[in-house]
Amino acid sequence: MSGSIDLYKDVWVFAEQNNGKILSVTFELLGEGRKLADSLGVNLCAVLLGSGIQDKAQDLAARGAQKIYIVDKPELAVFNDESYTAVLVDLVNKHKPGILLCGATTVGRSMSARAAALLNTGLIADCVGLVIDPATKNLLQTRPTLAGSLMSTSVTPGHRPQMATVRRKVMKEALLDTGRNSEILLQEVAAEVLKSRTKRLKLEVEAETTVNIVDADIIVSGGRGMQNAEGFAILRDLAGVLGAGVGASRAAVDSSWIAYSHQVGQTGKTVCPKIYFACGISGQIQHLAGISASDIIIAINKDPDAPIFKIATYGVVGDLFKLIPILTQEFRKLLKK
């Protein structure tokens, strides 16, 4: 940071886009950012980096961003750790926001960690709660730690901006209102800021992830109880009927029944669906760390003492190979598929 912390005011949201589409976590950050900006009496702003993305500013305006800083350069066409971070750092040093929020995505977590080091300021990762302390006006940032077994609340008292990455699907999206006005601020940066020593050669989209589990509203997960790779077929049927993503425990992934990108938990992905089906999963703490923010958890397990039943909203005790096909059939009827 440069200069006194009193110079740092507005609330900024990093508007993450992928292929020109703004990610929904950005709208969640604008929803949460609005509350923070109002309680501080400052502006809510968005930062949009990319190539040919200027027309996306209207999506951010409609979600309540009052000022939108845009850097539109061919070099920024796909996310790049070095150039995106350098541009963000440049904008922060110029305009001095008090708070900077990013989604706790691969992009958000990689970029904000590098940026915080360069800006000499604090970053709290993977936050699930943000609120302004009425006494100090500092941002109180709450996050899970130790595989979700503990929560901690932290502050960045003497450095600015106060940076946070925020877990997806925890905050409510800002309401859409196309009648809102905002100021578009197209920014120029020096050529060396856009330079990078890394380059994306290609992108391979995972063939099997028809529904990305990080974004899914319903997830059907299987564990060691699925017995083998073929066992997952009945889960895919259920997922197909529900339009759900397919997840897995580490035991299933380590047995090579399904790819690592499907793993849920501490060493895999943290998910936040409306409904999570845990089938043949015992419910060890490292698995629970990834699912505890789900609205409804349904456990299907033959062992009535499995720990998963202690946290499940609904539990069914029995053989999943008998139960799941019936469940699929019932949902097919219900949804008229």
Partner: peptide, 25 residues
């Protein structure tokens, strides 16, 4: 350090809910 931990606490415990046992259908 740029950040300070103010407090550490246990997360609100998820309560177990309804458990169904019996014939599959």
């Amino acid at each position: 350090s740029t950040t300070k931990v103010l407090k550490i606490f246990a997360p609100p415990a998820r309560q177990g809910g309804q458990i169904f046992t019996g014939e599959p259908e």
